[in-house]
Amino acid sequence: MIRMYCKNQYYWHFCLVLFYFVFANSAQAYASAEVTVPTEQEDGHWMQGLHETVSDSVFQSAQWFDSFFIANDSEQQSPKTTAKISFAWLPKSRDWSEIKPRFRLRVKLPHFQDRVSVVLSDEIDDELNNLPLESVNTNSSTEEEKFSLALNYTDDKKNDRLMNYRLGISGGDLFARAKHKRRLTINPKQGFLVEPSMYYYLNDGFGAKLLLEYDYQLSSKSLFRLNYSIRGSAAFSGIRWKHGFYKLEQINHTTASVLSFQAEGERNGARGFFIDKYTLSYRYRFNALRDWLFFEIEPFVEFPEQENYTTTPGIALRIEGFFHKG
């Protein structure tokens, strides 16, 4: 209980610092700018003002950070910033209180030829625990309330492959990771992805993961995808595995959907082979009000082992804002 309390305190203290860091720059920018009153015809909607404020604040902070890597006789270039802020409510039959605010910030540093970026996030490391299209994860854990700060370096980046390295801190634990991604085209309708990775956490030790992905183009707007991942670590016994089956469809230029079925579990551990959970979901995503604002509605049904695989229905409601500049 004491550990949980400390983690929550560190998490919210960090959020307050981040809030001050971003919005203090915004206030300073507004104070130094000429105040104008927009007319009804101008694009002065408060949502557009919010988007510009957050984008400018993140950009100014990134520019300040990148300035440390400039030689005295060099001219500063503009960094590229991408931020995502999301809120999700995931009520289900046994828990109606789960609300997840999330943020993710990526800054590409031009003085490293855009190969180096800084990634700041409080999301779960989806490249370790989750499949790429996994969106419903309702496991209650204090580990979700953590943030990570990492330096990301990409080398040998081409259309069909890349090599990526990451060094940072996550949940108070230092880590390093190396990942290779290779995409193979079988024919115009079929493709295959192989993504092995190795990582080391100071507290948990070494680990490795292998992600395999198969795509089949059903039509110009529909795709079938199969994901499979296995993961091992010195932090736990056995091998964790996940399967994912997805049907992706672009309904129109602002709307898309994903029908998914996932299964996850463990093998070769103390309990042998077992299945943690089955999840069936339908994810409906659409863009509305602004081109940077997205909404999602995702009804789902879980069959968890801890509930003797009893049907557990729920729904996920999300709103996401994307902020780009540079």
Score class of each variant (00 low, 15 high):
292 W>H: 03
239 I>S: 00
194 V>G: 10
277 K>S: 12
306 Q>W: 13
249 E>N: 14
77 Q>L: 14
169 I>N: 07
192 F>Y: 02
3 R>L: 14
142 T>P: 07
91 P>H: 01
172 G>M: 02
128 L>G: 12
92 K>C: 01
59 F>W: 01
170 S>Q: 10
10 Y>G: 04
171 G>D: 03
314 G>M: 00
217 Q>H: 07
196 P>D: 11
15 C>S: 12
194 V>I: 15
309 Y>Q: 03
163 M>H: 03
94 R>P: 00
32 S>Q: 13
78 S>L: 08
263 A>F: 00
154 T>R: 12
134 E>L: 09
309 Y>N: 05
180 H>Y: 12
166 R>Y: 04
101 P>R: 05
35 V>I: 14
263 A>G: 04
95 D>V: 03
186 I>L: 13
19 F>W: 06
87 F>S: 06
44 G>L: 01
280 L>F: 09
187 N>H: 04
145 E>V: 00
201 Y>N: 15
213 E>Q: 09
33 A>G: 05
312 T>I: 01
18 L>Q: 05
13 H>L: 10
261 F>R: 04
248 L>F: 10
224 F>A: 11
38 P>H: 08
214 Y>A: 09
4 M>T: 12
249 E>L: 11
57 S>G: 13
57 S>R: 06
22 V>T: 09
131 L>G: 02
188 P>S: 06
22 V>E: 08
86 S>H: 00
150 A>N: 05
317 L>I: 08
134 E>V: 03
298 E>R: 05
80 K>Q: 07
310 T>N: 14
205 G>N: 10
23 F>V: 11
92 K>L: 00
46 W>Y: 11
6 C>Q: 12
137 N>T: 02
250 Q>I: 10
5 Y>D: 15
234 A>T: 05
285 R>W: 01
247 K>Q: 13
95 D>M: 01
41 Q>A: 08
163 M>R: 08
27 A>T: 13
40 E>N: 07
219 S>K: 03
18 L>E: 08
204 D>S: 14
135 S>F: 07
307 E>C: 03
142 T>D: 14
4 M>Y: 13
111 H>N: 13
256 A>H: 08
278 Y>M: 03
99 I>D: 03
194 V>W: 07
14 F>D: 08
170 S>A: 14
303 F>T: 05
215 D>M: 01
116 V>L: 14
246 Y>S: 11
25 N>Y: 08
79 P>H: 03
200 Y>S: 07
61 S>C: 10
161 R>N: 08
100 K>T: 10
214 Y>F: 12
115 R>Q: 15
129 N>H: 05
283 R>Y: 11
273 F>Y: 13
226 L>Q: 09
48 Q>K: 08
115 R>H: 15
300 F>N: 04
197 S>V: 02
305 E>M: 09
7 K>R: 14
240 R>H: 13
140 S>L: 06
275 I>P: 01
48 Q>N: 06
90 L>D: 03
19 F>T: 12
7 K>N: 14
14 F>R: 08
115 R>K: 15
2 I>Y: 15
185 T>Y: 02
134 E>Y: 01
180 H>W: 10
320 E>T: 10
231 R>P: 05
248 L>H: 13
154 T>K: 13
113 Q>C: 10
323 F>P: 02
187 N>F: 06
51 H>S: 02
294 F>M: 07
185 T>E: 04
277 K>R: 15
65 F>A: 14
178 A>M: 11
16 L>S: 06
